[in-house]
């Protein structure tokens, strides 16, 4: 337990002091939110809610996704490339603790990110959410970040360390856009609207929007099921990457 606590604590400090992570993963969703919800569309409405609360759900999804892809995926790919993972593996630290700490940090940064978004929404854009709904949305976004944590693990093992930053961005930004996280799905071109309903960020944002009553969704459980499926797929990919990495170090691949 002590090991898990220390590993998580220092993982947290490490990421907090890393300016690139703070900028790309944490600041970007906040800036977008301020720009769209506070500056540009403050008085607009969308699906029965104010734009500012609607975008809490979508940029909240964007935020937890970024925290996981950068905080877990890029972080892991880097440490693998630097030989740091090897130092950990040579120590008595149980490997499960190493991964668990990384997952915790990804999810935790996502939660912090969402909390800051809420503060911005309530403070600057007059978002009104009951405490219960606030907690519900926070809970959904945090629980719904698990598939992205799994995707982070998969990327961390499958990406080549040198090209990982590019790859993570190439997945992060288009995936967010095509799932309607930057602008509502309804605003996307017709052809894209058909595609947008498949990727995991779409399902997460729908679940979060459900809290607002903006889009009470009869597909509630389908969204959770989709997220669970994606989690299983990403964990499978992570396992393949892990095996491949081991095989490569042993000169078999």
């Amino acid at each position: 337990m002590n090991v898990y606590w220390k590993e998580t604590k220092y993982e947290f400090l490490k990421m907090l002091r890393n300016p690139r992570f703070a900028l790309s993963a944490l600041a970007m969703p906040l800036l977008f939110y301020v720009l769209y919800a506070v500056v540009m569309y403050k008085s607009r409405h969308m699906g029965g809610a104010t734009m500012a609360s609607y975008m809490l759900a979508t940029f909240g999804s964007f935020g937890v996704m970024g925290a996981c892809l950068f905080g877990i995926g890029l972080n892991l790919a880097n440490e693998r490339g630097l030989g740091w993972l090897e130092v950990k593996r040579a120590s008595p630290l149980p490997p499960a603790i190493y991964f668990l700490a990384k997952l915790t940090i990804g999810v935790l940064f996502g939660a912090v990110e969402v909390a800051v978004l809420f503060a911005l929404g309530i403070g600057l854009a007059h978002v009104r959410l009951s405490p219960v709904d606030t907690l519900r949305m926070l809970g959904i976004l945090v629980a719904g970040s698990i598939p992205f944590a799994a995707l982070g693990l998969a990327l961390g093992y499958l990406a080549k360390p040198d090209s990982a930053p590019v790859l993570v961005n190439l997945i992060y930004l288009p995936l967010a856009f095509f799932s309607g996280l930057w602008m509502p799905v309804e605003f996307l071109p017709k052809a894209l609207q058909h595609v947008a309903v498949y990727p995991p960020p779409y399902h997460l944002s729908r679940l979060a929007l459900g809290v607002l009553g903006a889009d009470r969704d009869h597909l509630y459980w389908n969204h959770w099921q989709s997220l669970a499926c994606f989690t299983a797929i990403f964990l499978g990919l992570a396992m393949i990457g892990y095996r491949r990495d081991n095989a490569r170090q042993n000169g078999l691949a």
Partner: peptide
Amino acid sequence: AMLQVARVPETLRVREHIDLFASYY
């Protein structure tokens, strides 16, 4: 073990690294 490492997480302090590694034992 002291291995040849290309780079180590650079934002942690030396005493923090030691505190962390010692907790594994």
